[in-house]
Design a protein around this nucleic acid. Structure first.
Lengths: 144, 144
DNA sequence: TTTAAATAGGACAAAAATATCCGAAATAAA
DNA sequence: TTTATTTCGGATATTTTTGTCCTATTTAAA
């Protein structure tokens, strides 16, 4: 569904959000460990998320990554996916045709539109805050 | 959503089905041309589909690929996807966790299950015959 | 001021996916 | 029987994705 980079990105952002809610800034090392992701690759992804204003980075000793609490409530999964994978989730044809739309559809166009809209809707309505709620009480997990 | 190989595979199988309904056997060259796919790569994919009994291949002059008419009615997209991409469409976690299930879910597990079930259901209920119906009358397309 | 800890970013490496090439084998037709 | 056509399958090449490494820069604390 998503690229590995995007999966790591969502997991990282979710963990940063969780820590930020507790007023903690968190380091690359911690993030990679707690999301079971490769450290150096995660670093690249966090750079992208930082450039896209999804996370804030602080250089130097006691630096790390954080997300303003008010942003934890407003940032949607769709923003993270867009920052890393672009809009191909929304605009790609299920059968890989370059042009595929209502006027000249592939044989599964209509069916795909329904499924993709479901995914799109889910991504656009799920906030980072919502991602963290189960984690706090051990109902959901970011690794394993 | 699917790999390129799988997209080519679905398009190829659909074109072969369309020709088979008209009693025509079709060659690799034709298939690649009519589905706008790379010839040699399509050959590999057709080999896989042939091994998985989704298409029948006939070697030699005037050989090519075909699908028995009764099979055009019964073969589902899910079989093609499974033959090429395996079951990762069904069993993968949206965030890439190795284990992710109702007991120990990732934060988006439940939401993903819904979307994936929609996709699964679509693949399991769409036959090759259904894929071809719009093509005959120019309502749908396999290239562009 | 020095040192240690941390991110930034460029260069490089490895793995996977995508794609091509070519000789072998099969088959129909000349 | 020979030839042309076609798939099969192994080897190889290219591109993209995933991943690592190293140096520079920033910053807090000693």
């Amino acid at each position: 569904m998503f690229s590995k980079a995007c999966e790591y990105g969502i997991r990282a952002a979710t963990y940063i959000a969780l820590q930020s809610l507790e007023g903690k800034r968190t380091s690359l090392k911690d993030i990679a460990k707690e999301t079971d992701s490769p450290v150096a690759f995660t670093a690249k992804i966090l750079q992208q998320l930082s450039k896209n204003k999804i996370v804030e980075s602080v250089k130097g000793a006691s630096g790390g990554f954080e997300i303003q609490k008010r942003n934890v409530q407003t940032i949607k999964l769709s923003q993270i996916v867009y920052a890393i994978d672009g809009d191909k989730v929304y605009h790609g044809c299920g059968l890989g045709l370059k042009e595929c739309n209502g006027a000249k559809p592939c044989p599964v166009h209509d069916k795909f539109v329904g499924i993709r809209d479901g995914l799109k809707n889910m991504l656009e309505t799920t906030t980072l805050l919502e991602m963290t709620t189960g984690l706090e009480v051990g109902l959901t997990y970011l690794k394993r």
